[in-house]
Design a protein around this nucleic acid. Sequence first.
DNA 1: ATTGGGGCCTCCG
DNA 2: TCGGAGGCCCCAA
Length: 105
Amino acid sequence: MSYCESVYAVVGQVPRGRVTTYRLIASALGNPRGCRAAGNALNRNPDPVGVPCYRVVKSDGTLGGYNGGLPEKIRRLRADGIEVRDNRVLSFDRILFSPAPLKRS
DNA sequence: ATTGGGGCCTCCG
DNA sequence: TCGGAGGCCCCAA
């Protein structure tokens, strides 16, 4: 399983109404420094339906980027009941989700 | 609030 | 195969 695929697998763990960060994803895969690589993987998200990459934000709670455009990312988050203001997720510390470590094969 | 430097991975020549 | 560029980042100044 490629790095990209494992990234998608981890993102799949994030429940509705919660968010996670690029950093946490990289950590779950065993390397906290791979955060940028994780972002790179999500950038070319092959399956926007099965992989809700809009639930992934920066480690400081700001939104980060989105292939479909930020407005779209915000809309999707709101649809999940998450409030966004000034490019930042509200109550970030309360809805932050830490993915379980994933073993790579 | 900005900025520069660092590090991980994938794609393309 | 090898090398370089770039990406939805992070953190210390």
